[in-house]
Computed example of a mutant assay.
Amino acid sequence: MTREVSDSHGRAPLRSVSEPVTCRWCGSTEGTLVLDLGDQPAADHFPAADDPGPDPVHPLRMWMCAGCGLANLAEDPTTPEEPRGAEPQAMVDQARDAVARVQAAGLLNGPDGGSRRTVTEFGSPHGGSWLDLLDAVGLAPVAEGDGADLVIDCFGLMHDADQAAGLARRADAVAPEGTLLLQFHTLAAIVADGGWNALRHGHFAYYSTPVLVRMLAAVGFEPTHAFRFDLYGGTVLLAARRTGVGGPTDLPSVEQLVSAELAAGVLDPEVVGRLEAATAASADALASHLAAARDAGRSVLGYAAASRAVPLLNRARIGPDLLPAVADGSPGKQGRRFPGVPVPIVAVDEVVRRGPDEVVLFVTDLLDEMRGRIPEVEAGGGRWVVVDPAVREAEPRA
């Protein structure tokens, strides 16, 4: 497979790519490159503000396997850095909702109706945990090496470069009659939203529900329930047990979700490949919006130095002339800058101190939380503009 890669403005090709890609799940080398962002800095590398660079860049491509349908990160030569993000309130709320729904579905009960007692969690390196919530309903972490009644993976599996080994570890951690819970940002939502900037180094797989059901079957598990949440535009929680083990089921919830995603084209490279066209559209729209604000004399700040903002700012080539700073609630990111573009990252208090005419928010799920945390923005006549990845002005608060 050889392909020339041009930047988002159609200039000369950046490089030619001829290396074969191997599926991280099934090992096939047959597939289609569906999204190519060219050379990008690592999205978890935030240099010190006084670091002059240049920052290292690496290919960033999504490849869809023709054998199993998994959307893969084609290659990743980066070294993961210590995460510095803060868990958003929207994720905390979703976890609480998920545990309540799982409990209501009877999944915290064993096949004999008795309560489950033990839990193992495969968490995301970005933080967040359900263990406190599950402790409140009687589940305790299992002793190392023992199978757990309940095994949870919340956005963790996608960080395993070897998907087959990663899923096998999670399956092996489940007690014989236990339940496995897998939560993921579904590819169907990413495609529907044009969320091309969900692609990042360190995230090796992008699951659709039909593909993950197939993967579970390969390790001897069958899905029993599917729960959908609005987090990140569409998050799915799949519950699964070993094939043939009894217990509560809600198969229609699984079948309906699988059917809906198949109808949306999640296994069609041409459909998923629409993400390629979405890159220039959203990047150019953001650059145009910020240029218009500057020309009109409107002051602008950003909020959320999130990993998904890194390729967006780099693709749009947005520097401090258009975006003077981005505030973030994580102390570990403050005093640093975005990689590739020298936009500084500042403390949340700077938003109040500077009193901008608008704040560009790079994570939609943070809107309600930040409106409550920084009411001074709208109280002072400012507005919130959401970019995730399309640009839109947030509706006024009711």
Results as ranks from 00 to 15, higher is better:
D44C: 11
H45F: 15
P47M: 10
P47G: 10
G53L: 14
V57L: 13
P59S: 12
L60Y: 07
R61A: 01
M62R: 00
C65L: 08
G67H: 12
G67A: 10
G67T: 03
G67S: 13
L70M: 12
A71I: 05
A74H: 02
D76N: 11
T78C: 10
T79V: 12
E81D: 12
E82F: 05
E82T: 13
A86H: 03
E87S: 04
E87M: 11
Q89E: 14
A90T: 07
D93S: 13
R96P: 12
V102F: 08
Q103D: 15
A104W: 04
G106S: 10
G106D: 05
L108K: 02
P111Y: 15
G113I: 11
S115V: 11
R117L: 14
R117A: 10
T120D: 05
F122E: 03
F122D: 06
G123W: 07
S124T: 09
P125C: 08
H126D: 05
H126W: 13
H126R: 13
G128Q: 07
L131F: 01
D132W: 03
D132A: 15
L133I: 09
L134N: 05
D135T: 13
D135N: 14
G138N: 15
L139Y: 10
L139A: 05
P141N: 11
V142P: 04
A143Q: 14
E144F: 01
E144W: 01
D146W: 02
G147S: 10
G147C: 11
C154A: 14
F155L: 14
F155R: 03
F155Y: 15
L157S: 04
M158T: 09
M158V: 07
H159Q: 09
D162W: 11
Q163Y: 10
Q163G: 04
A164M: 06
A164F: 05
A165S: 13
A165G: 13
L167F: 07
L167K: 07
A168S: 15
D172I: 07
A173H: 02
A175P: 07
L180S: 01
L180R: 06
